[in-house]
Amino acid sequence: MSRTVSRLKRTFRVTLLLGGAATVAACATIYRDHGYVPTEEELAEVTVGVDTRDSVAESIGVPVTSGVLDDSGYYYVSTRMRHYGASEPRVVARQLVAISFSQSGVVQNIERFSLQDGQAITLNRRVTESSVNNKTFLRQLMGNLGNLSPASALPDN
Rank of each mutant, 00 (worst) to 15 (best):
M1I: 07
M1V: 09
R3N: 12
L8F: 15
K9F: 10
R13E: 09
L16F: 06
A25D: 08
A28L: 14
T29G: 07
T29K: 15
I30A: 13
G35M: 02
G35T: 02
V37Y: 00
P38R: 00
E41Y: 01
L43A: 00
T47S: 11
V48G: 05
V50R: 15
D51G: 02
D51P: 00
D51V: 00
R53L: 00
D54G: 02
G61Q: 01
V62D: 04
V64T: 10
T65D: 09
S66R: 09
V68R: 15
L69E: 11
D70P: 03
D71G: 07
G73M: 01
G73V: 00
V77H: 00
Y84V: 09
S87T: 08
S87R: 13
L96H: 05
A98L: 12
S100P: 01
S102T: 15
S102Y: 07
Q103F: 11
Q103Y: 14
S104V: 09
S104P: 03
I110W: 04
R112T: 00
F113S: 06
S114A: 05
S114V: 04
L115I: 12
Q119F: 13
A120F: 13
A120E: 13
L123I: 06
R125T: 08
V127P: 01
T128D: 14
E129D: 10
S130V: 03
L141V: 09
N147V: 06
N147C: 08
L148K: 08
P150R: 08
A151Y: 12
N157L: 15
N157Y: 15
